[in-house]
Computed example of a mutant assay.
Amino acid sequence: MSDPAAPDWGKVIEKHAERVFRIAYRILGSVHDAEDVSQEVFVEAMAVYQSGPVRTWTGLMVRLATVRSIDRLRRERGKPVSCQVAEAVSSKRGPDEELIATELANWLRDEIRNLPDQQAAIFSLAYFEQLSRNEIATALDLSPEAVSTTLYKARKKLSSQLAVVLGDKS
């Protein structure tokens, strides 16, 4: 006999599949990797549900998609980063701008691998998914102030790394 309080997994997947994929794709830059991570997220979400109640499905899915995508980035360290960056390349750009946008997106993905877990997750949600401070706080079960502080630290670290890459000694 099935649990009457159990979620309809088809509806859960249908409601969250696009967002989970979008988060994974924006972090990873690869359709194949984003599809793999999406499958991992839904399997893990089911396991989380089976171990106890889920406060918010959206928060759980956003958190899992972000964390699993960052995990995949870290596992792939040393391998070439995919060049599938559709959002970063506009048809109005010339080849030089496309190359710069692609290289910058690849550099950013590579550097996110080196951020502490919470900084990487918050930065990714803020810039790839464009979530507000309050939305990130809800998804990651943090205070909005903690989100702001962590985002500041992530930006500062990435900015200093970019300055090193660009040869800026200031």
Rank of each mutant, 00 (worst) to 15 (best):
M1D: 07
M1E: 10
S2H: 11
A5M: 08
A6M: 05
P7G: 07
D8S: 11
G10V: 10
G10L: 09
V12S: 04
V12W: 02
V12Y: 03
I13P: 01
E14V: 01
K15F: 07
K15P: 04
A17N: 00
V20D: 00
R22T: 00
A24V: 09
A24W: 04
A24G: 12
A24M: 12
Y25S: 00
I27W: 13
L28Q: 04
L28V: 03
G29I: 10
G29L: 14
H32W: 10
D33W: 13
A45C: 12
M46F: 13
M46S: 10
M46W: 14
M46Y: 14
V48D: 07
Y49P: 12
P53R: 13
T58R: 14
G59E: 15
L64Q: 06
L64C: 11
I70W: 02
I70T: 05
R74G: 03
R75V: 07
R75K: 13
R77N: 02
C83T: 10
Q84H: 07
V89E: 02
K92A: 01
R93G: 05
R93I: 00
G94A: 09
L99P: 00
A101S: 11
A101F: 07
T102W: 01
L104I: 00
L104F: 02
N106S: 09
R109V: 01
D110H: 01
D110C: 07
E111C: 09
E111L: 07
I112G: 02
N114F: 07
D117V: 02
Q119T: 01
A126V: 01
F128A: 02
E129T: 04
Q130F: 05
N134P: 12
N134F: 12
A137G: 12
A137N: 10
S143Q: 15
S143I: 15
S143K: 15
P144N: 15
T149M: 13
L151M: 09
L151G: 09
L151A: 10
Y152F: 11
Y152L: 15
K153N: 12
R155I: 06
K156S: 08
S159W: 12
S160V: 10
V165R: 15
L166E: 14
K169Y: 03
S170I: 11
